[in-house]
Amino acid sequence: MTLHLFLIVSMILCSLGAVMARRTIHGAIFLALVSILLAAVMFSANAPWAGVFELSVCAGLITVLFASTASMVGRGASYSKNERGALKWLPAALVVFGVIIWAVGAHFMPVFTPARHPGALSAMSVGDIIWRIRPMDLLGQLCIFVAGVLAVRIILGEGKDE
C-alpha cells in the first residue's frame, strides 16, 4: 500500500510538472515519468501486457516525438505571459477540486465500487481476447494506423510543395 501510495502521489506530481514546466522538453520528460509510473501501477495490478505497451509506446515513442518537436520548435514553444498567469493557479485549483471530489466521492463510493464478477473472459488470455473475441478492434486499429500514416504523409507533403 505504501508503494502504491508513493506511485500515485509521484504520478500526480509529475503530471503537474509535465504541464507546468517552463520548457516543453522538460514537460515531455515529466510525461515520460508519468508513463513509467503508470506502467509500474499496471504491473502491480497484474496487467503486464498493458504495462509493457505503456512503457514502450508512451514512455518511449511518444516521448521521442514530443522531445523532437519541442527541440525543432525551440523558443516558439515557450510560455506566453497570459498562459503563465493562467497555469500558475493550477496547483491551487487542483487542491480545491481534490477536496471537493474527496468529499463528494467518498459519499458516492459504494456506487462506483463494482461487484467482483469475473465472468468467462477472465479465464482467457489477453491474446485470445484480442484475436478471438475482439478481432474487429484490430481492424479498426489498423485503419487508424493507415489514416495516421496517410495524414502525416499528406501534411508533410504539402509543406514540400510550398
Binding site: 482467457m124 489477453v126 484480442i130
Partner: peptide, 8 residues
C-alpha cells in the same frame, strides 16, 4: 477481476 479484457 476482468484484467485480461481490460488489457486488450
Amino acid at each position: 477481476a476482468n484484467m485480461a479484457f481490460a488489457q486488450a
